[in-house]
Design a protein around this nucleic acid. Structure first.
Lengths: 108, 108
DNA sequence: CATACGATATATATTTATATATATTGTTTT
DNA sequence: AAAACAATATATATAAATATATATCGTATG
């Protein structure tokens, strides 16, 4: 019998609240387009047209998915002339990307 | 400028494949009921009625969400008389639960 | 003011969640 | 062994959320 990963002292309502917060976060990552965008942004900020070239995601889809990431405060933007640059704003994203890479990109 | 979390040598098609696999996994976890069930199971196997008592999730919902976890091979079952016992079958689940606990249950 | 860049709106399709009812499997009692 | 009961699974219907494509709009720059 392994140890509990979640402490039993964390009662059921507390667990449910934590689970709600965690699933909000997970749902936001759980889309291939958004996950790829975050991977690109993990290497530093990018403007929309750069992301479009790097990922091949069509612009309106890109814009919609970036809006989701903005709404969840996972990224922030900065305007420079006509370009809008995106960067990761939540450190949890980088932690989770590192973990996912270990689990799903073992060869790297 | 931080380092890329994902190696650039991982070209875009490879990245997309990894992203697809990762998002399948994330989507399965990205539901409060399923996440709570996995948290309970992280402490060792449980039968359905135990899970029902511990989580308060109504039985048909429980059974449906457990079916999702089975279909994705995240859990396996064992019958003992009338009871069916569930346990975690994929080590990635435990790793991810530990990570989520660090990110979302800092007080524990 | 024309053009480039990006955001927003709308429509449609697909997926996922939730509730209720019913079926299946196994156990216990007679 | 048949009947009654308990545990779990499945089916069906409906509602809600999400994804995807297309079209349109706004803003900044040259």
């Amino acid at each position: 019998m392994t140890d509990l990963v979640f402490d039993p002292a964390l009662d059921i309502e507390a667990l449910r609240e934590a689970a709600d917060a965690a699933t909000d976060f997970l749902r936001t990552l759980a889309n291939p387009d958004r996950l790829m965008l975050l991977c690109q942004l993990s290497g530093g900020e990018r403007c929309v047209s750069e992301l479009e070239n790097e990922t091949g995601i069509p612009q309106p889809t890109l814009s919609q998915q970036l809006a989701v990431l903005r709404r969840e405060d996972l990224v922030v933007t900065r305007r420079e002339g006509k370009q809008i640059y995106y960067r990761i704003a939540d450190p949890k994203v980088l932690i989770m990307l590192g973990q996912l890479q270990q689990l799903f990109c073992p060869e790297v």
